[in-house]
Design a protein around this nucleic acid. Structure first.
Length: 479
DNA sequence: AACCCGGAAGTAGG
DNA sequence: ACCTACTTCCGGGT
């Protein structure tokens, strides 16, 4: 495609014409290439190169590693049940712990890695933290090793920048960098997913079930991506890639009751996470997923382009808070149209799609500022949500009325289906309600929006939130 | 006029 | 056939 000739990022995979966008390339402005191909699924590409400088400090438990049974693989995620048992036995000896109830650990390494500190605590009171930490360290060490490999599925990350869903968790220092949590997150993400082959790696990866705001340490995939890619790396699907590994959740030290209980729903055995790395679990059933890029992902990609090639179209106003501005609405719409192969795409249509994100709290409008929106969730979270969404029905995550009191919204309970039909499917009004979006406009609005650092909730937004609730409560009336 | 909003219906891919 | 994530169109408000 012609754009490539002027490309600033030669290494960028071409927006292949062969991908079905014949003729469309010509619509791309000179020097601009989409970070991915609509059909070539760039996001399937492996992660970018890693910067070795981003390595976290050596693990304090590193030395323990040398005592690990040699039969155990470096990566706990690929341990078999037997390996897990061996690991536990080893831990008992190594740390002089009381005997574990092996019945509580009938799982493979992948599943083990999905356990939160709280989960461990419940399974082996007193040693939960320790086990969790050890496992985290092992995974981190492994990840670090991986980073040295060109095709490693893990990319370096840097502390994230923007807070995820403001409504789901306060912008506290929580999401500030926490190497361990981050590692765990990456660990978890890598494990959790059973994703489908292609987009799996990137576009969706999240590990299901753990996006619990209170316990998460958010990292911005975007940021990571930027880091990852370096100024010259291809923007192949940074978000997704980073997301997968850094995944959704990094658990903090403080246990979250809510989270814990929720985790119980998603712990291995009861829940089959989607999107595990193919390399580890090639036999895992593929997860249904969108073979196309999602709008929010698309925007993230542009926003986080390491080379900042799209700042003329869209740019962060405040990465920390997820606020961005569409600098060139028609231009961005065009790019989106190219991406989706909808040549008649315009800002009006694209913005409609954006507005659908309001309903699921992925985005919100920045009041009073034209073309300004705010991400309420980070990519990682979004991916998690996606997974949760897929599981929602089978898991029937519950919404108890009491949940309404929590202003923290479990990401997994958020509706992710943008269609009206899905809302009708909800047996209960809970997602929105649970998420603190309110049963009642004002009260909830407060709970939900308070965390938002920048802007006050617009009146319209409030009413919209209210409508959403109504929507959930009276599904039959819609449509 | 441009933007913004959200309802309604349609669509493509999974 | 069904679901998701839009896409398309539109009337109405700012």
């Amino acid at each position: 495609m012609k754009l490539l000739s002027t490309t600033q990022l030669p290494q960028l995979p071409p927006v292949s014409a062969g991908g079905g966008m014949t003729g469309m390339e010509s619509r791309l402005p000179p020097g601009i290439t989409l970070p991915f191909s609509p059909t070539d699924l760039l996001w399937r590409y492996g992660p970018m190169s890693f910067s070795s400088s981003a390595h976290p400090p050596p693990s304090p438990l590193l030395d323990f590693k040398t005592h690990l049974p040699t039969s155990l693989a470096s990566d706990p995620r690929i341990w078999s049940r037997e390996d897990v048992a061996a690991f536990l036995r080893w831990a008992e000896r190594e740390f002089d712990l009381p005997q574990f109830d092996m019945e509580m650990f009938q799982m493979n390494g992948k599943a083990l890695c999905l356990l939160t500190k709280s989960d461990f605590g419940e399974r082996c009171p007193g040693a939960g933290d320790l086990l969790h930490n050890v496992l985290t360290m092992l995974a981190r060490d492994f990840n670090q090793l991986q980073r040295c490999l060109p095709s490693s599925p893990v990319t370096p990350t840097r502390p994230s920048a923007y807070p995820l869903s403001p409504h789901s968790h306060p912008p506290t220092p929580t999401w500030v960098e926490n190497p361990y949590a981050a590692n765990l997150a990456s660990l978890m993400s890598a494990n959790s997913v059973t994703l489908s082959p292609a987009p799996s790696v990137d576009s969706q990866a999240g590990s299901p079930g753990h996006a619990e705001p209170q316990t998460q340490v958010y990292k911005s995939d975007s940021d990571e991506d930027n880091q990852t890619g370096g100024s010259n790396s291809p923007p192949a699907t940074p978000t997704a890639l980073a997301t997968q590994r850094l995944s959704e959740v990094c658990f903090k030290d403080q246990p979250s009751p809510t989270f814990t209980s929720q985790m119980m729903h998603v712990t291995p055995g009861t829940f089959r996470p989607a999107g595990s790395p193919r390399e580890f679990f090639p036999n895992d059933p593929p997860e249904p997923n969108t073979n196309g890029r999602l709008l929010w992902d698309f925007l993230q990609q542009l926003l986080n382009d390491p080379s900042q090639r799209y700042t003329h179209y869209i740019a962060w106003k405040s990465r920390e808070t997820g606020v961005f501005k569409i600098v060139d609405p028609p231009g961005l719409a065009r790019l989106w149209g190219i991406q989706k192969n909808h040549l008649s795409m315009n800002y009006d249509k694209m913005s409609r799609a954006l507005r659908y994100y309001y309903r699921v709290n992925i985005l919100r409008k920045v009041q009073g500022e034209r073309h300004c929106y705010q991400f309420l969730r980070n990519p990682t979270e979004l991916r998690n949500i996606k997974n949760i969404s897929l599981l929602r029905q089978q898991m029937r995550i519950k919404s108890e009325p009491e949940d309404v009191d929590c202003n923290v919204t479990p990401a997994e309970e958020l509706p992710t289906d943008l269609s009206m039909s899905s809302m009708n499917q909800l047996s209960e009004p809970l997602p929105l309600v649970v998420q603190g979006i309110l049963t009642e406009p004002d009260n909830h609005r407060k709970a939900k929006e308070e965390p938002l650092p920048l802007h006050d909730p617009p009146p319209k937004y409030r009413s919209h939130a209210y409508n959403l609730v109504k929507t959930n409560q009276e599904p039959d009336e819609r449509k």
